[in-house]
Amino acid sequence: MLRSPGFTPHPMHIPDGFLSVLVSIAFWVVAAVLVGIALRKTNQVLGERQVPLMGVLAAAIFAGQMLNFSVTGGTSGHLLGAALATILLGPWPAVLVMTSVVSVQALLFQDGGILALGANLFNMAIVGVFVAYAVRTLLIGVLRKRSWGVFASGFLASWTSIFVASLACALQLALSGTSPANVAVPAMAGIHALIGVGEGLITVGALALVYAARKDLLTVGEAQPAGNTGVLIGGIALSLLLVLGSPLASSHPDGLEWVAEQKGFLEAARGVLYNIIPDYVMPGISDPRLATIVAGILGATVVFGLAYGIARAERRSAAQTGARG
């Protein structure tokens, strides 16, 4: 009943707990700035149509993530939609659509964390869109004469966007000290190299249908609109950075400084605390086992007490209504 539509949780939605606070906040800042730009840019182009168009299409991408096809042995391919949205709407509207999708998944369906939302937005709404846009724009330039150019570029744009976004995800986990880079990078990259094929195939199928019904929506070979040069450069830069940076990170799994920084902060805070509260003032806290037992008893007491109180209050009000009725 209470499921997010695309229940097979997409392995790219990072839940809370897996990213350090520092990494989370850094990506929140980056995501907020870029989403702000996307809001302004789409508003310039779409004006008063922005809200209904972006809102309904975000709902469509969200629902479209439920579409799947069986591959083999219970596994299935499905759609993330960043590349499809980019190809059909252009990069900035796609950023906005994916932002809405990923945010609603986190806020209403707990698919991806709240603190981790910045990082998830960065991976799916920004890297996913920028990389798809860069790959498609470059390929369409090369393949403009070929009739299958739309589809080949669509497939590669989808595959690359998934693949590169998964590298970003793996590096965030490595930066947080959650998953060593030499494990996280190959694992995420390997899984998403396959997931990306499913994404690419569905995107091509979707493009084929749109191409047959509304060719005007696929402006093949058209000169890239001026306002999107930044996205093109950003997409190329992100792709290069992540594709070249990941093997480097995997070969130096301990070289990621951010973990240490948060640790340093915590150590400093702890030092301050120990100065304020010498540990003999609170016996028990110095012994972690005893502290755990005390916390457990305290927690259980609070919860049971509360449950008992509520049950009593409810029984009393039920008895009252019973007496009255």
Partner: peptide
């Protein structure tokens, strides 16, 4: 099968565009 699914995604997109 993937193409069929893609076709569904494409028609979903067009229908949603019209709805918008």
């Amino acid at each position: 099968r993937a193409r069929v699914t893609g076709g569904m995604a494409g028609s979903l997109f067009l229908r949603s565009l019209e709805r918008s």
